[in-house]
Design a protein around this nucleic acid. Structure first.
Lengths: 180, 180
DNA sequence: GCCGAACCATACGGTGACGTATGGAAGGAG
DNA sequence: CTCCTTCCATACGTCACCGTATGGTTCGGC
């Protein structure tokens, strides 16, 4: 069943390797071994390793922007409620991919460009929410940064408290950042 | 003049390579070429590449904790003033090393342990400042996290506004986080 | 049942690094 | 001046991976 595989399988394996061990583990021959196949398959589906990495970046850029924001927008509610919902969602988000992508971006211009675009889009969305709450443009900007940094920090830092503690912290931060 | 060099020169070169291009660029032979010397020298001063990386980690752990905190403590002032001073200092801090070390930590357990220890120490210090301001323990904890995440975000994210804008943002964040 | 296209295996040459072995050179103690 | 230590150069063997070449295998359409 599904003895043959397509470029999608390679991408999935690459994504898994990236999330677990970083971009440096996304190598053709190890992936082939992991897939129980030879690299002959890889060079049929992809031009070379850079092409795989580019595809990986492209896929992440698409997902990273839409995934959470869409989920929040479709739920609706006041700007403040959406903000809290958004923040709480990041508590349960899988941080490994996000983390490894930022690590990748530290040493690679293409990845850095993608991460920067994603950051900009997410920040723009957050600014919009604070604008809805009536904050002036620079105020909205700063508060957007503040809550975004917090979410990223919670996700990417090694220090992780209990879920209960993080939940309490999230509510407190939300209250501070929404308050006039 | 100083034709011969010691392990310190290798460490310095390694540190520069790390800051510029990440841990992956800290390789023996490229460093040797950059130093205008051969790797025969390296394997005299260091056991192997892991030993160099370990030394790099050790040095950073020492500097990263002391450097800023000491500077702030020696200046004195109220807890709030020290907090603001600390935050402003990070605006001019060189973010590349910090950034690359976190990237390194994403794929290496030893580096991750070091970064986590550094984070813990810095957070402990921040918690102390908020405790001085009279915040309860969990409140102090959350506020410490909040301001730490912000500083890290400002340092490590690709998006960097003008210095004036960042300064304004820093003051605003400080005000929010200090307010009861 | 045949054929072309899609897919995979195998074998190869090339590259950039690692670490080792061994033989100098340079510099100070005596 | 000599000798011992410290430091560096050179040459080598190895390894992991890249990308290519080429030949096999499977599958859908006819």
């Amino acid at each position: 069943m599904a003895a043959r595989l397509g470029s999608g399988d390679w991408l999935a394996a690459a994504k898994a390797a990236l999330a677990e061990h970083g971009v440096d583990a996304v190598r053709v021959e190890p992936l082939a071994q992991r897939l129980g196949i030879t690299k002959g398959s890889f060079y049929w589906h992809f031009r070379d390793r850079p092409a795989l990495l580019a595809a990986l970046l492209e896929e992440w850029e698409r997902e990273a922007t839409l995934a959470i924001i869409d989920q929040v927008e479709s739920a609706g509610g006041t700007a403040s409620a959406r903000l809290l919902r958004l923040f709480l969602l990041t508590l349960d988000a899988e941080p490994r991919l996000e983390r490894q992508l930022r690590a990748w971006a530290a040493g690679d211009a293409a990845a850095a460009a993608v991460v920067e675009r994603v950051d900009r889009r997410r920040l723009r969305y957050l600014r919009g929410l604070f604008a809805e709450l009536g904050f002036s443009s620079p105020e909205a900007r700063t508060r957007a940064h503040l809550i975004y940094y917090s979410a990223l920090g919670e996700m990417t830092l090694g220090i992780r408290a209990s879920r209960a503690a993080r939940l309490r912290a999230a509510r407190l931060i939300h209250a501070m950042v929404v308050r006039r």
